[in-house]
Structure formats: structure tokens, C-alpha cells
Amino acid sequence: MAKEVTKLVHEYLRHDKKFPHVWCPGCGNGIVLGALIRAIDRLGLEKDEIVLASGIGCSGRMPVYADFNTLHTTHGRCLTFATGVKLANPALTVITVMGDGDATAIGGNHFIHAARRNLDLTAIIINNQIYGMTGGQFSPTTPYGSHASTARYGHIEHAFSISELAVTAGASFVARATVYHATLIEDMIKKSIENGGFGVVEVISNCHTEYGRRNNMADPVTMLQWMKEHAVTVEKAGKMSPEELAGKFTVGVLADVKKPVYTEEYEKIRKRAGAPKAGERA
């Protein structure tokens, strides 16, 4: 296993990028990056074919370390850039990584429309329930009653459920995992890419520095323990009563459907408009 990990690190991380990375010790972002790399390796995708795009925040720094075509965009907008990349070259596998604030506050509009449009993209959303990089302000997923640097008296707003939002907005594939369930993240990313439509993989992660510290979980182990205790598989949740599910969240596949994909639909439009075939295009 250790040898296998070293091999993957050498293969997929940039040797000319100055490490160490910007993340705090114990941050869940590294677990997500590891899972992403393993999923790509298992799919046998070429590095040249992959575009990894991000927005702004701690998650936004992920692409710089990975040896793909990498794109660090503006806050909340990475799905819009990814849309352009994918449409200009549908042969590329385009993966975006965003944070909860990035994807569902400033980027919320782009998120729901990307899901509705069903372009072949995978959106990994690292949900640590806080704005970590800027110092622990509450985000759209900060739980009611918890504390943040801008919720000193306890948070009075209610949290989005990102995955459920994605299902409603029409994403072809939606799954949730946690950084405790590291191999599940890997499986879900792989499945999402394989689905061929717009896929969302929400990963509950730990920001012990900015969220845990203010909410009685000041170290990563405590936070991962919390994930272990509160996560219920989708299958198991189906057999549980609402009372038993109170305070819990589901992990696993929440949606996996086949719908017409934008690029395929657009190719039909080109045919109807009498466009030259792909190889003949100027």
C-alpha cells in the first residue's frame, strides 16, 4: 500500500511545484485530493485529457498541486469556466472542485444551472461548513445554532443540503461521502465520471481550525469521529424511521440516472444546422 501511494504521488502530483501545501495539518482537503487521484488512476484516464478547475478558498488551491491541465478561477465561477472548456473540447474530462461557500453561496446560481443543463462535468464539493480561508465566517451549510466568526451568538440561518439541492436541480449523478469514508469518495468520483452527465460528489470535510475550534471539535480526529457517528448509508437510511434519522446524514449514491447530455444534444443541433463534421471543421 505505501509503495502504491508513493507511485501515485509521483505520477499525479507536480514535481516542480513548491511544497508544502497551504492547508492546515489534518485538513480533509488532502484526503479528497488522494481520492480524486486514485479514482482517475482506476479509470485509466490520461493526465493530458483531464482538466481540474477550482474556485476560491482552501479547496481552490487543490489544482496547483495536481499534474493535469489546471485552472484556478474566480470565486464561485469555476463551473462557468469548466462549461466553456468542456464545450470547446468535449474530449476532455473536466472535473471541478469547490468549497461549500464557493459552490452554494457566491456560485449557487451557476451550480443549479450546471445541474439543470446536464453537461458532462463532475463537481466535487468539499463541504466543511465554514469559510476557512477567510477566517471562519458562516457559510450556507453552517448548521443552525453553531458558532462562526460572524455568528458569535449562534447561527440563526438554516443550512443547505447540497446533495439534495443537486438532485432537485437535475444533476444526473449525486453522491455524498465524508473524509472519514475515504474510499467511498474515490468510488463516488469514479461513478460520477462514468455517469457521463453532470455529477456532484459532496464530501463532508473537517475544518477543525475554523469550524471545529468554535464548536467543541478542535482537532481533526474528533471531527472525523463525528462524521463516522453521524453518517448513515443511503441503504440503511431507507430502513430507519425519521426519529432514528434525526441529526444524521446519508452517504452513498443519491441519484444516478441517464439523461440527454448537453454536448450530445448540441451535436444534433450542429447536424440539423448543416455543420461540417467534427474532423472537417475549420
Partner: peptide, 12 residues
Amino acid sequence: ASMGAIIGASLA
């Protein structure tokens, strides 16, 4: 989003 998309397409 329009502006983001044209930047993405240009990068490709």
C-alpha cells in the same frame, strides 16, 4: 457565467 465560459473555451 457568460464571461467565465468564454474564458474557459479560449483556454481550450
